[in-house]
Design a binder for these strands. Structure first.
Lengths: 136, 136
DNA sequence: GAGGTATGGTCTCTTATGTAGACCACATCT
DNA sequence: AGATGTGGTCTACATAAGAGACCATACCTC
Protein backbone atom coordinates (compact mmCIF):
# COMPACT_ATOMS: atom_id res chain seq x y z
CA UNK A 1 0.00 0.00 0.00
CA UNK A 2 2.82 2.32 0.79
CA UNK A 3 5.19 1.30 -1.95
CA UNK A 4 3.10 0.58 -5.02
CA UNK A 5 1.73 4.05 -5.40
CA UNK A 6 2.52 5.70 -8.70
CA UNK A 7 2.71 9.31 -7.52
CA UNK A 8 4.47 8.48 -4.29
CA UNK A 9 7.68 10.48 -4.06
CA UNK A 10 9.08 8.31 -1.30
CA UNK A 11 11.50 6.36 -3.49
CA UNK A 12 13.18 9.58 -4.60
CA UNK A 13 13.76 10.71 -1.06
CA UNK A 14 15.03 7.35 -0.03
CA UNK A 15 17.38 7.07 -2.93
CA UNK A 16 18.87 10.34 -1.83
CA UNK A 17 19.05 9.35 1.79
CA UNK A 18 20.51 5.98 0.97
CA UNK A 19 23.40 7.64 -0.81
CA UNK A 20 24.49 9.10 2.51
CA UNK A 21 23.73 6.19 4.75
CA UNK A 22 27.34 5.82 5.72
CA UNK A 23 27.29 9.04 7.72
CA UNK A 24 23.60 9.74 8.26
CA UNK A 25 24.23 11.97 11.24
CA UNK A 26 26.95 14.14 9.79
CA UNK A 27 25.63 17.41 8.32
CA UNK A 28 28.96 18.02 6.62
CA UNK A 29 28.41 14.98 4.44
CA UNK A 30 24.66 14.58 4.09
CA UNK A 31 23.07 17.50 2.22
CA UNK A 32 19.68 16.65 3.54
CA UNK A 33 20.84 16.97 7.11
CA UNK A 34 22.68 20.10 6.20
CA UNK A 35 19.79 21.88 4.56
CA UNK A 36 17.34 20.53 7.09
CA UNK A 37 19.42 22.06 9.84
CA UNK A 38 19.00 25.42 8.19
CA UNK A 39 15.32 24.90 7.51
CA UNK A 40 14.90 23.85 11.12
CA UNK A 41 15.99 27.21 12.39
CA UNK A 42 12.60 28.71 12.97
CA UNK A 43 13.21 32.12 11.42
CA UNK A 44 15.17 31.44 8.24
CA UNK A 45 12.25 30.26 6.09
CA UNK A 46 10.10 33.12 7.29
CA UNK A 47 12.83 35.58 6.37
CA UNK A 48 13.23 34.04 2.93
CA UNK A 49 9.50 34.48 2.39
CA UNK A 50 9.68 38.10 3.49
CA UNK A 51 12.59 38.72 1.13
CA UNK A 52 10.79 37.07 -1.76
CA UNK A 53 9.07 40.38 -2.55
CA UNK A 54 12.37 42.13 -2.98
CA UNK A 55 15.20 43.68 -0.97
CA UNK A 56 14.38 44.78 2.52
CA UNK A 57 16.15 46.66 5.28
CA UNK A 58 16.95 45.32 8.71
CA UNK A 59 14.24 47.15 10.59
CA UNK A 60 11.68 46.56 7.86
CA UNK A 61 12.26 42.81 8.26
CA UNK A 62 11.90 43.05 11.99
CA UNK A 63 8.66 44.99 11.72
CA UNK A 64 7.18 42.60 9.19
CA UNK A 65 8.06 39.39 10.96
CA UNK A 66 6.73 40.98 14.09
CA UNK A 67 8.05 38.83 16.89
CA UNK A 68 11.69 38.24 16.12
CA UNK A 69 14.34 39.71 18.38
CA UNK A 70 17.13 41.80 16.93
CA UNK A 71 19.59 39.23 18.11
CA UNK A 72 17.95 36.37 16.24
CA UNK A 73 17.31 38.54 13.20
CA UNK A 74 20.99 39.39 13.01
CA UNK A 75 22.02 35.81 13.51
CA UNK A 76 19.53 34.34 11.03
CA UNK A 77 20.49 36.85 8.36
CA UNK A 78 24.17 36.10 8.92
CA UNK A 79 23.50 32.39 8.54
CA UNK A 80 21.58 32.94 5.33
CA UNK A 81 24.31 35.22 4.07
CA UNK A 82 26.94 32.63 4.89
CA UNK A 83 25.02 30.00 2.96
CA UNK A 84 24.86 32.31 -0.05
CA UNK A 85 21.09 32.62 0.00
CA UNK A 86 20.98 36.28 0.98
CA UNK A 87 23.19 39.25 0.17
CA UNK A 88 23.90 42.18 2.47
CA UNK A 89 24.62 45.65 1.23
CA UNK A 90 25.47 48.67 3.39
CA UNK A 91 24.52 52.14 2.15
CA UNK A 92 26.54 55.13 3.38
CA UNK A 93 23.56 57.07 4.66
CA UNK A 94 23.57 58.67 8.10
CA UNK A 95 22.99 56.52 10.00
CA UNK A 96 24.04 53.77 7.58
CA UNK A 97 21.25 51.58 6.29
CA UNK A 98 21.60 47.95 5.35
CA UNK A 99 19.69 46.15 2.67
CA UNK A 100 19.16 42.42 2.48
CA UNK A 101 18.19 40.68 -0.75
CA UNK A 102 17.91 37.17 -2.13
CA UNK A 103 20.73 35.90 -4.28
CA UNK A 104 20.10 33.70 -7.32
CA UNK A 105 20.61 30.68 -5.12
CA UNK A 106 18.19 32.13 -2.60
CA UNK A 107 15.60 32.75 -5.29
CA UNK A 108 15.94 29.17 -6.47
CA UNK A 109 15.02 28.02 -2.97
CA UNK A 110 11.70 29.81 -3.20
CA UNK A 111 10.30 27.02 -5.31
CA UNK A 112 10.58 24.29 -2.64
CA UNK A 113 9.45 26.82 -0.05
CA UNK A 114 6.41 27.67 -2.14
CA UNK A 115 5.50 23.99 -2.47
CA UNK A 116 5.78 23.68 1.28
CA UNK A 117 3.61 26.70 2.00
CA UNK A 118 1.03 25.55 -0.51
CA UNK A 119 0.81 22.25 1.29
CA UNK A 120 0.58 24.08 4.59
CA UNK A 121 -2.28 26.19 3.35
CA UNK A 122 -4.13 23.26 1.83
CA UNK A 123 -3.86 21.01 4.84
CA UNK A 124 -3.99 23.36 7.77
CA UNK A 125 -7.59 22.53 8.54
CA UNK A 126 -6.90 18.83 8.67
CA UNK A 127 -3.98 19.36 11.00
CA UNK A 128 -6.06 21.48 13.33
CA UNK A 129 -8.80 18.84 13.35
CA UNK A 130 -6.25 16.16 14.17
CA UNK A 131 -5.00 18.23 17.07
CA UNK A 132 -8.44 18.69 18.51
CA UNK A 133 -9.07 14.95 18.19
CA UNK A 134 -5.74 14.11 19.81
CA UNK A 135 -6.16 16.51 22.71
CA UNK A 136 -9.66 15.22 23.44
CA UNK B 1 14.04 42.40 -11.61
CA UNK B 2 12.59 40.41 -8.80
CA UNK B 3 8.95 40.69 -9.70
CA UNK B 4 8.78 40.39 -13.45
CA UNK B 5 10.14 36.90 -13.64
CA UNK B 6 7.83 34.41 -15.27
CA UNK B 7 8.79 31.31 -13.32
CA UNK B 8 9.17 33.13 -10.02
CA UNK B 9 6.97 31.48 -7.41
CA UNK B 10 7.22 34.49 -5.12
CA UNK B 11 3.79 35.92 -5.88
CA UNK B 12 2.15 32.69 -4.76
CA UNK B 13 3.88 32.70 -1.43
CA UNK B 14 3.14 36.33 -0.88
CA UNK B 15 -0.50 35.97 -1.75
CA UNK B 16 -0.68 33.33 0.92
CA UNK B 17 1.24 35.34 3.46
CA UNK B 18 -0.76 38.47 2.71
CA UNK B 19 -3.96 36.66 3.57
CA UNK B 20 -2.73 36.32 7.14
CA UNK B 21 -1.06 39.68 7.51
CA UNK B 22 -3.43 40.68 10.24
CA UNK B 23 -1.85 38.22 12.68
CA UNK B 24 1.49 37.38 11.12
CA UNK B 25 2.97 36.20 14.40
CA UNK B 26 0.13 33.96 15.54
CA UNK B 27 0.66 30.30 14.59
CA UNK B 28 -2.94 29.52 15.49
CA UNK B 29 -4.11 31.72 12.64
CA UNK B 30 -1.36 31.63 10.06
CA UNK B 31 -0.92 28.14 8.55
CA UNK B 32 2.51 29.01 7.29
CA UNK B 33 3.73 29.87 10.75
CA UNK B 34 2.02 26.82 12.09
CA UNK B 35 3.55 24.35 9.68
CA UNK B 36 6.87 26.13 9.72
CA UNK B 37 6.99 25.71 13.47
CA UNK B 38 6.68 21.98 12.97
CA UNK B 39 9.16 21.90 10.13
CA UNK B 40 11.52 23.91 12.27
CA UNK B 41 11.73 21.21 14.88
CA UNK B 42 14.92 19.59 13.73
CA UNK B 43 13.84 15.96 13.95
CA UNK B 44 10.33 15.90 12.51
CA UNK B 45 11.29 16.10 8.84
CA UNK B 46 13.98 13.50 9.30
CA UNK B 47 11.50 11.17 10.97
CA UNK B 48 9.00 11.67 8.16
CA UNK B 49 11.69 10.70 5.69
CA UNK B 50 12.56 7.61 7.68
CA UNK B 51 8.89 6.61 7.83
CA UNK B 52 8.45 7.15 4.10
CA UNK B 53 9.68 3.59 3.47
CA UNK B 54 6.95 2.15 5.62
CA UNK B 55 6.03 1.57 9.27
CA UNK B 56 8.89 1.45 11.74
CA UNK B 57 9.26 0.65 15.41
CA UNK B 58 10.52 3.05 18.05
CA UNK B 59 13.97 1.58 18.42
CA UNK B 60 14.36 1.07 14.68
CA UNK B 61 13.78 4.79 14.21
CA UNK B 62 16.28 5.64 16.87
CA UNK B 63 18.90 3.37 15.33
CA UNK B 64 18.37 4.74 11.83
CA UNK B 65 18.40 8.40 12.73
CA UNK B 66 21.48 7.70 14.75
CA UNK B 67 21.88 10.68 17.01
CA UNK B 68 18.46 11.37 18.41
CA UNK B 69 17.83 10.88 22.10
CA UNK B 70 14.91 8.80 23.29
CA UNK B 71 13.47 11.87 24.85
CA UNK B 72 13.38 13.86 21.62
CA UNK B 73 12.27 10.83 19.62
CA UNK B 74 9.28 10.36 21.89
CA UNK B 75 8.41 14.03 21.82
CA UNK B 76 8.80 14.43 18.06
CA UNK B 77 6.69 11.36 17.38
CA UNK B 78 4.00 12.62 19.75
CA UNK B 79 3.95 15.96 17.96
CA UNK B 80 3.65 14.28 14.58
CA UNK B 81 0.92 12.03 15.92
CA UNK B 82 -0.95 15.00 17.34
CA UNK B 83 -0.82 16.74 13.98
CA UNK B 84 -2.25 13.65 12.30
CA UNK B 85 0.84 12.96 10.20
CA UNK B 86 1.86 9.77 11.95
CA UNK B 87 -0.10 6.93 13.53
CA UNK B 88 0.96 4.92 16.55
CA UNK B 89 -0.01 1.31 17.11
CA UNK B 90 0.89 -0.81 20.11
CA UNK B 91 1.27 -4.57 19.68
CA UNK B 92 0.68 -6.81 22.72
CA UNK B 93 3.99 -8.59 22.52
CA UNK B 94 6.18 -9.07 25.57
CA UNK B 95 7.57 -6.52 26.01
CA UNK B 96 5.03 -4.54 23.98
CA UNK B 97 6.27 -3.16 20.68
CA UNK B 98 5.07 0.05 19.09
CA UNK B 99 4.84 0.75 15.40
CA UNK B 100 4.79 4.19 13.83
CA UNK B 101 3.48 4.80 10.32
CA UNK B 102 2.55 7.69 8.07
CA UNK B 103 -1.11 8.56 7.75
CA UNK B 104 -2.62 9.67 4.44
CA UNK B 105 -2.01 13.25 5.50
CA UNK B 106 1.56 12.35 6.38
CA UNK B 107 2.11 10.71 3.01
CA UNK B 108 0.78 13.79 1.27
CA UNK B 109 3.47 15.83 3.02
CA UNK B 110 6.17 13.70 1.39
CA UNK B 111 5.76 15.62 -1.82
CA UNK B 112 6.85 19.02 -0.47
CA UNK B 113 9.54 17.26 1.54
CA UNK B 114 10.82 15.54 -1.59
CA UNK B 115 10.98 18.84 -3.46
CA UNK B 116 12.95 20.28 -0.57
CA UNK B 117 15.41 17.40 -0.42
CA UNK B 118 15.86 17.50 -4.18
CA UNK B 119 16.77 21.14 -3.94
CA UNK B 120 19.10 20.35 -1.06
CA UNK B 121 20.87 17.71 -3.06
CA UNK B 122 21.13 19.86 -6.18
CA UNK B 123 22.50 22.92 -4.42
CA UNK B 124 24.57 21.52 -1.63
CA UNK B 125 27.81 22.20 -3.43
CA UNK B 126 26.97 25.83 -4.02
CA UNK B 127 26.06 26.30 -0.38
CA UNK B 128 29.32 24.77 0.75
CA UNK B 129 31.25 27.01 -1.62
CA UNK B 130 29.41 30.06 -0.30
CA UNK B 131 30.36 29.07 3.23
CA UNK B 132 34.00 28.73 2.39
CA UNK B 133 33.93 32.12 0.68
CA UNK B 134 32.16 33.74 3.62
CA UNK B 135 34.45 32.27 6.24
CA UNK B 136 37.52 33.34 4.35
C1' DG C 1 19.34 -19.32 38.54
C1' DA C 2 22.46 -15.13 37.41
C1' DG C 3 23.46 -12.12 34.02
C1' DG C 4 22.86 -9.96 29.65
C1' DT C 5 19.56 -8.14 26.02
C1' DA C 6 15.62 -6.08 24.23
C1' DT C 7 11.03 -3.58 24.53
C1' DG C 8 9.23 1.76 24.81
C1' DG C 9 9.31 4.96 27.48
C1' DT C 10 9.92 8.54 31.70
C1' DC C 11 12.78 11.28 34.95
C1' DT C 12 16.47 14.22 36.26
C1' DC C 13 20.59 16.97 35.45
C1' DT C 14 23.27 19.70 32.59
C1' DT C 15 24.08 22.38 28.65
C1' DA C 16 22.72 24.87 24.36
C1' DT C 17 19.61 27.99 22.32
C1' DG C 18 16.43 31.71 22.18
C1' DT C 19 14.19 36.00 24.21
C1' DA C 20 13.80 40.68 26.29
C1' DG C 21 15.60 44.69 26.83
C1' DA C 22 19.18 48.10 27.78
C1' DC C 23 22.75 50.42 25.37
C1' DC C 24 25.62 52.57 21.46
C1' DA C 25 26.89 56.76 18.09
C1' DC C 26 25.12 59.56 15.05
C1' DA C 27 21.92 62.55 12.52
C1' DT C 28 17.60 64.37 11.51
C1' DC C 29 13.07 66.47 12.67
C1' DT C 30 10.25 69.22 15.99
C1' DA D 1 16.64 70.23 23.88
C1' DG D 2 14.30 66.00 23.20
C1' DA D 3 12.39 62.50 20.59
C1' DT D 4 13.06 59.28 16.60
C1' DG D 5 15.29 56.09 13.56
C1' DT D 6 19.58 53.61 11.92
C1' DG D 7 21.78 48.49 12.60
C1' DG D 8 23.53 46.25 15.63
C1' DT D 9 25.94 44.21 20.29
C1' DC D 10 25.88 42.84 25.23
C1' DT D 11 23.94 40.95 29.33
C1' DA D 12 20.57 38.54 32.09
C1' DC D 13 17.03 35.35 32.04
C1' DA D 14 13.83 31.51 30.21
C1' DT D 15 13.09 27.78 27.44
C1' DA D 16 14.47 23.76 24.73
C1' DA D 17 17.41 20.00 23.82
C1' DG D 18 20.90 16.30 25.06
C1' DA D 19 22.97 12.50 28.16
C1' DG D 20 22.15 9.05 30.77
C1' DA D 21 20.01 6.48 34.71
C1' DC D 22 15.94 3.87 35.65
C1' DC D 23 11.59 0.83 35.05
C1' DA D 24 8.98 -4.00 34.50
C1' DT D 25 8.90 -7.76 31.82
C1' DA D 26 10.43 -11.72 29.28
C1' DC D 27 13.48 -13.98 26.69
C1' DC D 28 18.35 -16.34 25.79
C1' DT D 29 22.77 -17.94 27.40
C1' DC D 30 25.76 -19.76 30.52
Amino acid sequence: MTRAHASNPAPDILTLMAAYEGAPDDPAVCPIRDVLDRVAQKWTLLLMIQLSTGPKRFSALQRQVGDISKRMLTQSLRDLERDGLVSREVFPTKPPSVEYALTDLGRSSLEPIAVLTQWADNNHDRIRQARVAFDG
